[in-house]
């Protein structure tokens, strides 16, 4: 089964890395966004199943964006991909409705493992 993925991160490099890695991992990249506002717009147009979400972004931060996306689609799977500088914010994001957290920097294996775990397809 192929999942539709939206990548939300203000770093072009990170977006590229996630995109390259997950394209080879049964994911169809339907949208990318560099901030929360853009993510909301892209979401309505593309209706992804899964979102990778940075927390610290311009205009609308990740927390606010998660809150809105969950209201738009309660069963949306969200993986927070962020640095571990502020654990409290990351925990807050999970309480707002994200299901997993992946710490930056991450390897390709870290990302695919986290995605499998998020979608309930753990290996070994």
């Amino acid at each position: 089964m192929t999942f539709k993925l939206m990548i939300v991160d203000d770093s072009n490099i990170i977006r590229g890395k996630i995109s390259r890695t997950l394209t080879q991992h049964r994911m169809e990249i339907v949208a990318t966004a560099a901030n929360g506002e853009d993510a909301i717009k892209q979401f309505s147009a593309n209706q992804p199943d899964v979102v990778t979400m940075d927390l610290t972004m311009p205009r609308m931060d990740g927390l606010e964006c998660i809150r809105k996306l969950r209201r738009m689609k309660p069963d949306l799977r969200i993986l927070v991909v962020s640095a571990l500088a502020d654990k409290a914010t990351a925990i807050q994001a999970l309480k707002e409705g994200a299901q997993g957290f992946l710490c930056k920097p991450f390897s390709e294996d870290d990302l695919t493992d986290a995605m499998d775990e998020l979608l309930g397809e753990t290996h070994g």
Partner: peptide, 28 residues
């Protein structure tokens, strides 16, 4: 601060639909 974060983290594990493996790195 650690106390507040720890309380939130424990609540997260007890009451929210998160993946245990995917939040372990947030353990304060």
């Amino acid at each position: 601060k650690t106390f507040d974060t720890a309380k939130e983290y424990i609540e997260l594990l007890l009451r929210h639909d998160v993946k245990e493996k995917l939040v372990a790195s947030l353990n304060p």
